[in-house]
Simulated assay, not measured.
Amino acid sequence: MLTAHIIGRQDGEEEDRLDPLSDLIPAVIRKLPSFELTDPAQVPMVTGVLIAAAMGMDTVTWRDQFGTIPPKEALVHNFVLWLLADLFDNLVDQPGATDLLMRETFNSMAAEPG
């Protein structure tokens, strides 16, 4: 969801926009080694999830086809979320924008009947 939101919320000229496959995903993947606990063996799966998100696919369904998520992979997904949140906050020039977006999303889900 956050990846799709970042892609869809960019203003400006077409040439100024982040292309998810050539800009966004490589930028996130390049930053992962800065997290000491990142297991490099998990990066291909995390990249696949990001590509699925950029293609508008259901990332949970896409990832679930490969079985249970091991703890080392889950940790890397958390780092990716942090990087995407930081990127989104910077794109909209509003610290905490991601937190607000997620709160609004969860509140709206809680308000739905069923």
Rank of each mutant, 00 (worst) to 15 (best):
P44C: 01
L91H: 04
I29T: 08
V76N: 07
D11K: 10
K72G: 10
K72R: 01
A85P: 11
P113I: 09
D99T: 15
D16Q: 09
K31C: 09
N107S: 11
M55R: 12
H5S: 10
T3K: 03
A85L: 01
E104V: 14
S22L: 11
V80R: 00
L83K: 02
E13W: 00
A97F: 09
A41E: 13
L84Y: 12
V43W: 02
F106I: 10
H77W: 13
E73T: 05
L84Q: 07
N107G: 15
Q65G: 07
D58L: 11
V28A: 03
L91T: 07
T3E: 13
M102W: 13
G8T: 02
D19A: 05
V80K: 07
P113V: 04
T3M: 13
V46A: 03
A4E: 11
E36W: 05
F79R: 07
L81D: 10
D93W: 11
D16R: 15
L21N: 13
L100T: 15
A4H: 03
L21V: 02
L2I: 11
V43L: 01
A53M: 14
A111T: 10
L21M: 09
R17K: 13
V28P: 01
H77S: 12
P44R: 08
V60N: 04
R9Q: 12
M57C: 08
E36D: 12
T47F: 05
I51C: 03
D19K: 03
Q42I: 02
L84D: 13
P20A: 11
L50T: 09
V49H: 01
P40Q: 03
E104N: 09
A41R: 06
F106T: 09
L83Q: 03
T98D: 07
H77E: 08
P70F: 01
R103M: 15
M102S: 08
M55L: 14
V49R: 09
H5W: 03
D99H: 07
I69F: 12
W82E: 11
N107P: 01
I7R: 11
L81A: 05
R63Y: 11
G114Q: 13
V92A: 06
T105H: 12
M1F: 07
T47Y: 06
L75D: 11
P40W: 00
P20G: 13
W82I: 15
E73I: 02
M1H: 14
L81K: 06
L81V: 02
E14H: 10
E36P: 07
F106R: 13
F35W: 06
D99L: 14
R63F: 12
A4S: 14
Q94K: 15
A74Y: 04
A54T: 03
R103E: 15
L50W: 14
D19G: 07
F66I: 00
F79E: 14
L18M: 11
R103V: 11
V46F: 00
I51D: 03
Q42P: 08
T59R: 03
W82F: 06
P20R: 15
D19T: 10
V92Q: 01
S22D: 14
R9K: 08
I25P: 00
D86A: 02
P70S: 00
